[in-house]
Design a binder for these strands. Structure first.
Length: 295
DNA sequence: GTGATTTGACCGTT
DNA sequence: AACGGTCAAATCAC
């Protein structure tokens, strides 16, 4: 509508970028703190871990201070202080009027997210398809799935599946969120023998915790059983830690795993075949070519 | 009959 | 305004 002076636009843009950076930094710090708590719990007594995390947290704090000073020196705009992880920026209007149809809650990238390339949609989980959509820049439609246990166990895991552009015989599956459900038929994690683990592929679910000491929260069902959980079994379940860790997948159908935190070094998978990572993800997220990266 | 899938519409975000 | 994610009625499959 109204024409803004160029300078004002540029300043606004800088401010916006700064705000975004601060927000992302806040997320990083919060996640780091959570991870630190988890690690300290599970690796109690290991002072090295604690030291490393203190270093990490210190670095983040210093970065925050520098960024804040920089921004305030600039336009002084950032209303976001250090505790800006819950910035109420542009809080979306919530439709309280009852009709939730089509309520779009576009995912904020804070959810753990993994991209997997697989020949099959069957990953051992029980999914319920709730939508399909033609995507503008893609040849193939995208299918939307939620965990079958969304309502009975409140599991918020989702996935999106789309035929690969490169290889139309394979699906590019994006896993969003973590399974907090537990299929009553699943053998408790402690019962999984080492030999089974050797034949399985672990897919790490990012943000919540990278599976270091997360054995108690091995999640969800890898048994491919089409059943909604019955109440008895569900009531016997301990509340699954929301920071759960892994899917176990049959070795015969090891999908391609792509993970955003390739530098974390936390992969515990027996043998991730990183050479067939979904190239698009690396390009999109990191802006580099995986061919270069994995050379 | 019950649960899963399909599909058009809705609506928040960009 | 376009796009993408979700809802929910209609339909299908067992």
């Amino acid at each position: 509508m109204e024409q803004k002076p160029v300078v004002a636009c540029a300043e606004a843009e800088v401010s916006l970028v700064g705000d975004t950076v601060v927000r992302e930094m806040a997320k990083i710090r919060a996640s780091t703190a959570r991870l630190g708590v988890l690690l300290r719990e599970t690796l109690a007594g290991n002072s090295t871990v604690g030291d490393v995390f203190e270093e990490l947290e210190d670095s983040i704090s210093r970065a925050f201070s520098l960024l804040d000073r920089k921004l305030q020196g600039g336009d002084g705009s950032p209303s976001s202080g250090h505790q800006s992880s819950e910035i109420p920026t542009k809080k979306r209007k919530v439709n309280l009027a009852g009709d939730r149809r089509g309520g779009c809650r576009r995912r904020i990238q804070s959810s753990p997210l993994r991209i997997v390339k697989s020949k099959t949609l069957d990953d051992g989980q029980t999914w319920r398809k709730y939508g399909q959509k033609e995507i503008q820049s893609a040849k193939h439609p995208r299918s939307y799935f939620r965990c079958t246990h969304k309502y009975d166990q409140g599991c918020m895991a989702h996935r999106q599946a789309q035929l690969s552009e490169d290889d139309p015989t394979a699906y590019v599956i994006t896993y969003i969120g973590e399974h907090t459900c537990r299929d009553p038929t699943v053998v408790p994690p402690q019962m999984v023998s080492a030999s089974i683990l050797q034949d399985a592929c672990l897919i790490s679910f990012g943000a919540g915790g990278h599976g270091v000491g997360q054995e108690a929260s091995v999640p969800a069902s890898f048994a491919s059983q089409k059943q909604e959980s019955d109440e008895d079994a569900a009531s016997n379940l301990t509340t699954a830690s929301s920071s759960s860790g892994y899917f176990l997948l049959p070795a015969t159908e090891i999908p391609v795993v792509t993970t955003p935190d390739v530098t974390s070094g936390f992969h515990t998978a027996t043998d991730l075949h990183m050479d067939f990572m979904a190239d698009t993800y690396l390009e999109d997220v990191f802006g580099f070519d995986d061919d270069e990266f994995f050379r």
